[in-house]
Nucleic acid binder design. Structure first.
Lengths: 110, 110
DNA sequence: TGAGCCCGCAACTCCATAGTTGCAGGCGCG
DNA sequence: CGCGCCTGCAACTATGGAGTTGCGGGCTCA
């Protein structure tokens, strides 16, 4: 819903939650009870993780009869990639500025 | 040091810590006391964040006289990008398989 | 209708962590 | 030397989050 990057970063912080997201991405629309068989935690814990992932916009749950199918929504992951890229670019800018300074010094020295 | 992706994801979870990392990336080698002026928290809090970032391998601290300069180490961020890319690829595989199924059905129907 | 399955809500424990305050130590310069 | 500045260590609070257990409700199918 909200595209606050905070929620996405926070959602990816927990290892178990990342495993849940991975499984949802691989298996496709799955229910919490099915995921329980592949994870070392309770269904309730998985449901909580799915709620967190849902609030972060990384997953959607849709009712299908008596079970709820959760599916991946990969778009919010782009925000993370962008953030990382931005850090990298600023890093590169800094390197460029540094090199510029060095070059200027060289020209001064010559 | 250790390239456990867990530490990197966990390090990026906190908003203040991301701001610290950003500032280090922009300003280049900076001290905790300098960062204190641009952040709404105590120096001690910033130091703790820098320690966490350091343990995650995202930052290195080097003593320069009486102050400690912290610099960005961007490499661990690649692990995060890779993880995201992997999720995306599995997502794409699933889409491809789905399309295959649809195509098979179409050929059956024809 | 009854048994089995899947979900939802609630209460509770427990540990990690973000942040603060306080104080002591080391470097540098006039 | 003495003052100012930056760092380091320690204790403490408090909030959030991961996980569990327990229970009740609603499908579904024989």
């Amino acid at each position: 819903m909200r595209e606050a990057p905070d929620a996405v970063f926070a959602a990816l912080a927990d290892p178990t939650r990342r495993r849940v997201l991975r499984l949802v991405a691989e298996r496709g629309p799955t229910s919490a009870t099915l995921l329980e068989r592949e994870l070392p935690v309770t269904r309730q814990a998985i449901v909580k993780h799915l709620v967190v992932l849902s609030r972060a916009g990384l997953v959607t749950g849709q009712r299908a009869g008596q079970e709820v199918r959760y599916a991946l929504v990969p778009e919010p992951l782009d925000e993370v990639s962008e953030w990382i890229a931005e850090i990298g670019s600023r890093w590169d800018e800094r390197l460029a500025r540094l090199r510029q300074v060095v070059l200027d010094q060289e020209t001064e020295w010559s």
